[in-house]
């Protein structure tokens, strides 16, 4: 933590005021510039404590500039402007296409069911058994759809957080960090804010039917 002297010597205060008048808005680059200008004008006139103080301020300016350069190098803008929207669009398309395909399969099964109703004996039983197995298999679509929806919600939450970071830096550094409009999370997220708590669970977190039957029986 930078320790400032209780009182800035008057000559130093006058010189800082003169430099501040040339740089009205505070900015890390300007801080570095101010420090450099002060050091230039004060060379040879500084006491040991003044020198230490200005060295600390100069170091602070370098640290801020380095952090800013690292964040800019991450191309964070691309994450929120391109990668996450593209990923969520693809996932939404998967959900839509699998839902459409499943609906088509179920419609065909309904047709087969009506045909089975007009048949007798083994043929009818075999056809009904086959359509029943198709109905059971199609339950995959509901699970995959919900899992993907959870992923989309998580990505949008990440997108929102990144946008907040960009906005925070853009307030301090102007155009250097352009923050796009934060994504609106539309997926259902419970009050604790954890998207992973909604929808089908990972195998390690899920109860099977036997566990559920025991839980229901405990209420009786």
């Amino acid at each position: 933590m930078l320790e400032l002297p209780a009182r800035i010597p008057e000559p130093l205060a006058h010189r800082l005021a003169a430099i501040r008048s040339r740089y009205p808005a505070s900015d890390p680059d300007m801080v570095a510039g101010v420090v450099g200008a002060v050091l230039t004008t004060m060379r040879g006139d500084l006491s040991a404590s003044d020198t230490a103080l200005l060295h600390e301020v100069e170091e602070l300016g370098r640290t801020i500039a380095a952090a800013r350069a690292e964040i800019a190098a991450l191309q964070v803008d691309d994450i929120t402007a391109s990668h996450i929207p593209s990923a969520t669009d693809e996932l939404d398309a998967i959900v839509a296409h699998t839902a459409g395909a499943t609906n088509s399969i179920l419609e065909v099964c309904e047709t087969l069911d009506s045909v089975a109703g007009k048949l007798d004996g083994e043929a009818a039983a075999a056809l009904q058994d086959a359509t029943t197995r198709i109905y059971e298999a199609c339950s995959f679509q509901d699970i995959t759809g919900q899992r993907i929806t959870k992923v989309v919600a998580t990505l949008k939450a990440i997108d929102s957080k990144v946008a907040q970071i960009l906005n925070t830096f853009s307030e301090a550094h102007g155009d250097s960090f352009r923050a796009p409009t934060p994504a609106v999370v539309v997926s259902p997220v419970p009050a604790n804010g954890d998207p992973a708590a909604v929808g089908p669970q990972l195998p390690g977190n899920a109860m099977d039917q036997t566990d559920i039957d025991k839980l229901l029986a405990s209420f009786d």
Binding site: A197, P200, A206, M207, L215
Partner: peptide
């Protein structure tokens, strides 16, 4: 349903 956590079952019950 695909909801298989304890709290889901309890809420339904």
């Amino acid at each position: 349903t695909a909801e298989s956590k304890t709290e889901n079952v309890v809420a339904a019950k």
